[in-house]
Every structure is written in structure tokens, then in C-alpha cells.
Design a binder for these strands. Structure first.
Lengths: 214, 214
DNA sequence: CGCGGCGTCCACCGATCGGTGGATGCCGGA
DNA sequence: TCCGGCATCCACCGATCGGTGGACGCCGCG
């Protein structure tokens, strides 16, 4: 834990690992801990713990999973960023680099985005890169930010409608559920189709699920 | 590093770890390697590698992920089992314990089913249990095998149709794609609805995805 | 053998959906 | 200020879907 001096005497990068899976935490700690120039100074299992652990240990880099029970990763990123604009560099390390996740994480203040199937060398290099202030992005994440692949993101309302549709509700049922007209529901869905690049509700549900909307 | 020092290979459980994520492999090796009575003797990144590594090292237990690029875990289980009916105990360690995955893995010859979010102690205990011939199952896996939750599983043909539907194909398009009548497609879908407990194609796509059918 | 269960196949209706066209209100930049 | 972009809202048609009913062939089991 607090092995290095407070004045960043050694130039070892101090890292906190945040993931709900003990296995993944051990994997990350194992890979990074044996590396020269990197020191794992704390672990957390969810977003809330992450904020506390970071406050206690003041690391250089936080490796953060996004989808966790009890304290979302996005919220944790926002909390860390509002507390301090640059101090702990945040590297998001998650399973899927869906468009939505990438954007939400980066706009929340993350400094990098890496997939969990990264090789050891990639991971180590990424930690050093974000520590040095260089952004880290997967190709898909880059494309998502460039807005090349999907130019439009469904509205909250549209996503809500899509979610209800995925539950099996008919347009009329959705309308009643939301207290709006059925025609409105259809318009929302048409917009969803356009934005997801599909032609019907079934395909919309699939793509919506793939992108983490549902 | 630590763990069994050469000579203590007598009654130590010899384990092979199979997962496409280096991070997960390191996590598992780290947890198990430092444990007394367990020795990690090999790693593999996919099903094909797994068969070769097992053949070379003759372990007591194989920790096997299911969804991997290049050599499915199910196929690997089948290959190991046909080669030898009991010798390497197979513990499936995956992210989701969906009904379908559980059944396919267990019928393929797996001896246990554990989720990746298991705690360290659970994991160690599970390895010892399967090594001793005791089955290991999550509650959800148990329910899946008991057939309590879902009594019917969609046919291969039905799943195929559902997959095409999730791509956005209309019934007529699916019919043309499969060289059958459109009415037949609809019958397949009706069966899918019944078996998945839904009422339309959108909900079917969602549940199908949740259960790993798509 | 006879029987039932299962997967696969098909045709006809009523309900629903996807497509088009347009309207309102809000907000930020020219 | 005015204007455009955006989200939200609505009504009418043709195409599609979900529901019902039934048919054939295969396989295992009594």
C-alpha cells in the first residue's frame, strides 16, 4: 500500500484498480504489480468504494470498469473529476467498447478507454500513457468519438420507448404506459430505427442491446 | 512464483486455465497459484489451444471459459471428454450462467459451473470440489438443470429463424433466405414465443439475446 | 406393431406495425 | 431578434405480423 513517499519521490505510477470481479482485480494487480515503475496501491469493487479508495490513496491512475453493481463507473468518474479536474488519470477498462459507453465515459471525464481482452503489454503501456497525459483509445472508441460510425444517438425518450418495446409491449401499450399517443410512440421508434440503422423493432432491440442502450 | 516448490507435486491439484482474456488468466493463475495444494500447470487462450495444452500437461482440473474466439469452449469440452471420460475434471467459469450455456456445457461433459464474479475462496473451494469429483453449480445453473424455470428450449431451426429476425429480416425475407414458405417461418416464431414466454418478435430478440441464443 | 410426441410445413383473418406528412414548443447561434 | 435544429407530438394508408387451425413425416416407447 502506501509504500512510496508522499512527494512522488520514486517515479513509480501509483494505480488503483476498480472492478467488481475479484478475478479481474487479481489479474490486473498481478500484471501491473510485477511491472517495474508501476505500483498498485488500492482496489475497489464498485464506484462508491472507488471514490473512497482514491481519496485515501491519491493514485496517479485509476483503472475503472463501467458496469458494476452498487455504484456505477460513470458516476464514479464524474465524482472523481468534480473533486479534482486532472489529478487521478482515469483509464476505463471494460468488456465492450460500445458507442454509448465510450461517449458517456469520455464526457464524464475519462482519459482513456481500453478493452479487457487487451494483452499484458498493451495494458502496461496504456497505464504509462495515461499517466503521462497521453489519451488511450481503442479503434472502436476512436471511431465512436469521431462520430464516424453513428452520427446520431437516440434520445432518452427514444431509448425509453425502445426499452419498453423490448419488454414486449405493443405501441399502444407503450403509449398508455407513458401517457402519450400511440402515433407519438411510432414516431419515436422511427427515429430510433434511423439512428440505429435498422428497419424494424426486432433489429432495433438487437442493436440497442449490443450498444448497451437496453 | 510461490506455491508448490517442485517437490510438492504429489497431491497438489494440477490446473489448466483457459480464457481468451490475459487479464482473467493472470487473475486465475494468481489466485490459484498462491494457494497451497493447487498448481497451475498451463494456460490456453481458446478451445483449440486448450485441447493441446491438456494433452501435453495432463491436469486434474480444467478451468474453461465458454465464449472465446477461435475454438468454442463447448467444442473443447466435448473433445476432452471423448478423449477421456473422466480424467480432467472440467469446471466451466464464465460470465453469465444462462440456461442454454449451462445445459450445453453440462451435457457436453462439464463437471461444474461457476460465475466469474465468484470470490477467491469460492473459486479455490470449487477447484478442490471438482477435483474430488463433487459437482459445483451456481443456484441459477442448478435451476437451469432442474428444468424448473424454462421447460422448453427452442429448436436449432427456431433459433436460426430468430437470429435472422434479429438481423432485421422480415418473415418473407427469412423464408426466401431459408428456401421455405413464409407461413412456416411464422410457425417457427410462434413456437419461439411460447418457449421464451414472450408475445412478439421484439421481446423474443431481447430474451434470446439474454439467454445467449443470438 | 400402434401410438404419441416432436419438428417441420402450409393457408386464411384481424390486429399491429412501418412509412409518409405535418404541427408545436424549446433552445442556442447568427 | 430571427432563424434553424431538435425533441416531442399527432392522423391516415399499405404492408407486415400474430393467432388459429390443420397436415405430413420421423423417431422412440410401450
Amino acid at each position: 500500500m502506501s509504500g512510496a513517499d508522499g512527494t512522488s519521490g520514486t517515479d513509480a505510477v501509483r494505480v488503483v484498480v476498480v472492478d467488481d470481479h475479484p478475478i479481474v482485480r487479481d489479474g490486473l494487480s498481478g500484471i501491473l504489480g510485477t511491472e517495474e515503475g508501476i505500483e498498485v496501491v488500492g482496489e475497489a469493487a464498485n464506484g462508491r468504494e472507488a471514490v473512497a479508495v482514491v481519496r485515501a490513496n491519491d493514485p496517479d491512475v485509476v483503472l475503472m470498469d463501467l458496469r458494476m453493481p452498487g455504484g456505477d463507473g460513470i458516476d464514479a468518474i464524474g465524482a472523481l473529476r468534480t473533486a479534482h479536474p486532472t489529478r487521478p488519470r482515469i483509464l476505463v477498462l471494460t468488456t465492450y467498447d460500445t458507442d454509448r459507453d465510450v461517449r458517456r465515459a469520455m464526457t464524464a471525464g475519462a482519459d482513456g478507454f481500453l478493452l479487457k481482452d487487451a494483452r499484458r503489454a498493451e495494458l502496461v503501456r496504456a497505464v504509462h500513457d495515461v499517466a503521462a497525459g497521453r489519451p488511450v483509445l481503442t479503434p472502436a472508441a476512436l471511431a465512436a468519438l469521431a462520430g464516424r460510425r453513428y452520427e446520431a444517438e437516440p434520445t432518452d425518450r427514444e431509448v425509453h420507448v425502445l426499452r419498453l418495446v423490448s419488454e414486449g409491449l405493443t405501441n399502444g401499450a407503450v403509449a398508455r404506459h407513458l401517457g402519450i399517443g400511440e402515433a407519438t410512440v411510432k414516431t419515436h421508434l422511427l427515429h430510433v430505427y434511423k439512428k440505429l440503422g435498422v428497419g424494424d423493432r426486432a433489429a432495433a432491440v438487437r442493436v440497442g442491446w449490443e450498444r448497451g442502450l437496453i
